[in-house]
Design a protein around this nucleic acid. Structure first.
Lengths: 230, 230
DNA sequence: TAGATATGAATGAATGATCATTCATTGCTA
DNA sequence: TAGCAATGAATGATCATTCATTCATATCTA
């Protein structure tokens, strides 16, 4: 899914004056292209400048477009930010769903490993994306819309993981395990480890974080995850 | 004639009913009192308005003081925010240290329960405080100073918990448990559960969150934490 | 003790900077 | 050429910061 690369391959200085003719001869692009371009630029700007340092100017510069363009395709800055949050949540949820639905690995042991691999993949744990996640969390108490979007994402994600863990509990015949509680605990631990990766990268790297999550899963699902494995 | 009154009309707008010019108190308070007052007001404003909605005006209004006072006692808004973050991190660390140092509960089973009780106490999981925590996290990627403060807090907290877990591992003779990894996993899970409490309070309440954490501890330290206990 | 003066904490109007949004204009494309 | 995407200067709103002024209290003086 290499969707959001466009904006970064043009030097920012090119934005102002010369438009490279590029491959397409049309100056005006379909709205959908511009929207994706602007959403991608918003992510980059939030990662680089923080949410409070992200202005219409930083976003449109990053996209190599003019100042007014964002209000043309989105009605306001607020709506552009919401679209950005939705894009990230959507990418995450569909990626996780793909792992859980993968028919090539109906073996639950493999699938559990795939799930952890996904959650700690380079793509998902990119500093930029984590920065965007947590930037929105910080404002969510005050912005009901942010809260609603994340709440929906959370419910979906936890439910999918819970269903999967229920199958593992059944297959492993784990007597004391409670799939719902483990699903909540696992997703919470993932969020917390991501926070560590973002804020204290010197204390913890991606693979160590994955190890920590694997230890947890190994302690509750010993027949499906072995401590030394990943 | 009636114009004599003009100059005494002013006090109404002043200080928004801060306090009656009571006999005991001087109008001017010691700097330490004002600093605490302003830090407290900053927390309230961040919880109420978000970090981006917090201005010098909202802070000083909350404190019942005038606009200029914050720049008098702190050099800038930035420094006031940093002082606020430090105050919260300090309160948390000293609270946790007190639990771990408590001589009345040298029994590790009791102390482990006290620790979880602390982490999910009403005081620590107040929505307002969580909102402040995560508001700063969101900006930390971009503000090195925020990152440094939180990083220091994190290192201290994890180290203290790791030392405590090492004693539990030794006492329980847990063969596969790795205190460092469990300490990281536990603190990460706490952060993640707090995030859920803040953002998805309908999905999870304080006691359920505590249950989830206890399940985790019970799975790694079965002799020190029983699933149904808390 | 009463009155005068000094001190500096506290105030808030004014300033200048930043930013979202608008819209008249530009210029590509069909 | 008509239509419309795109532009960016201009606008108005918001906000941090400044600083001349106010005023409660302490200290001095007779």
């Amino acid at each position: 899914m290499a969707t959001f690369q466009q904006s970064s391959d043009l030097p920012r200085t090119a934005a102002k004056r010369s438009r490279p003719p590029a491959r397409t001869s049309r100056r005006s692009e379909p709205p959908e292209v511009r929207r994706k371009q602007l959403i991608s630029a918003t992510m980059h700007s939030i990662a680089k400048n923080g949410l409070s340092g992200t202005t219409m100017a930083t976003i449109t510069q990053e996209a190599g477009l003019s100042l007014g363009i964002a209000n043309l395709h989105f009605k306001s800055k607020e709506k552009l930010l919401l679209a950005t949050l939705e894009a990230i949540a959507g990418e995450y949820n569909s990626g996780q769903a793909a792992v859980l639905a993968d028919r090539d690995h109906e073996n639950l042991v493999h699938k559990l490993n795939d799930l952890v691999d996904f959650h700690f993949s380079k793509n998902i744990t990119q500093k930029n994306k984590l920065a965007v996640w947590f930037a929105f969390f910080g404002e969510s108490k005050v912005r009901p819309t942010y809260q609603r979007i994340w709440s929906g994402h959370d419910i979906q994600s936890v439910a999918a993981i819970r269903d999967f863990f229920e199958r593992i509990v059944a297959e492993g015949n784990y007597q004391t395990a409670h799939a719902t509680s483990i699903a909540r605990g696992y997703t919470a631990m993932i969020d917390g480890l991501w926070l560590d990766l973002l804020i204290a990268p010197r204390e913890l790297n991606r693979l160590q974080a994955k190890q920590v999550a694997c230890h947890y899963l190994a302690s509750v699902f010993p027949n499906h995850m072995s401590i030394g494995s990943e």
